[in-house]
């Protein structure tokens, strides 16, 4: 994280623009996009589903302790829980987990190709590494992360409902109640996942493509790439939340 967040984000914005331009010029192979989508889906789906399922259990366990202390009725927390999961927690948790899973493997794969001179070999074979390697990952990630977020919502709310119903013998169905959810919430979640979905592969690819030297450079690329992908998602999450907060306050 040297040089301040603005310069870092500048490099990523530039890579994004170059990737889009390269993809427009050279085209993107649909099979590659599908391959990356399948890989993303199978590798991240389990992590996100299990992670958010556990997260839901823990969250309502703590909330249960608090609710008993202050007002007794846990069911009143159900609808805001559903809303918070949809608007905030599932998007950010899915994004951070995808950043870990997919960011690490992207930075590792591209970093290894970079130090093995394969990127240059591609270039001399008349292929554009951005169109060939980065663009399919970008498209796949933008398409899959929203689906993974929906999966996260399902996992976190159903685990909360199950925990309340079976562990605490209370009204768990309240935790599946979407009555508070507004169009703004859905929109906010969608904007977050789309932005994070685009940011993760770009941030990871950036460090992978920059890897120079030996095997050590690949390890460094993974470390820096994953951290930047995670931090970028946190920043995006905050900015979008702030934007929607201001918008809703004005209404």
């Amino acid at each position: 994280m040297t040089g301040g967040p603005l310069r870092v984000l500048g490099a990523q914005t530039m890579l994004f623009a170059r990737t889009v331009r390269a993809a427009a010029r050279h085209g993107v192979r649909r099979r590659e996009v599908l391959r990356h989508m399948a890989e993303l889906g199978t590798s991240s789906a389990l992590l996100i589903a299990v992670g958010l399922f556990f997260f839901g259990v823990v969250l309502v366990t703590i909330a249960w302790a608090q609710a008993r202390k202050y007002f007794g009725n846990i069911a009143v927390l159900g609808p805001p829980y559903f809303q918070l999961i949809l608007r905030e927690f599932s998007p950010i948790m899915a994004a951070v987990l995808a950043a870990s899973r997919q960011g690490a493997s992207t930075a590792a794969a591209l970093g290894a190709m970079s130090v093995n001179e394969q990127l240059e070999a591609l270039e001399l074979s008349a292929a554009d590494p951005l169109a060939e390697l980065v663009a399919p990952r970008l498209i796949a990630s933008v398409l899959v992360l929203p689906l993974l977020t929906v999966l996260g919502v399902v996992a976190a709310t159903s685990s909360a409902a199950l925990t309340i119903t079976f562990a605490f013998q209370n009204n768990g169905a309240a935790f599946l109640d979407p009555s508070l959810v507004t169009t703004g919430d859905v929109l906010s979640a969608l904007v977050k996942t789309l932005l994070c979905g685009a940011f993760i592969p770009i941030a990871a690819s950036l460090r992978g493509l920059q890897a120079q030297g030996g095997a050590g450079a690949v390890g460094e690329a993974v470390t820096v790439g994953v951290v930047e992908a995670c931090m970028g998602c946190l920043l995006i999450d905050f900015l979008v939340a702030a934007a929607f907060f201001i918008l809703s306050a004005q209404q």
Partner: peptide, 30 residues
Amino acid sequence: GGAAGVGRAAAAAVVSGCAAIFFLDLALTP
């Protein structure tokens, strides 16, 4: 396995770290 192996190890560490944290969270919190 060289540079690719180092990358794979770092990536695997991140992912299993995430999994371990979720698991510990669930096991320890209650």
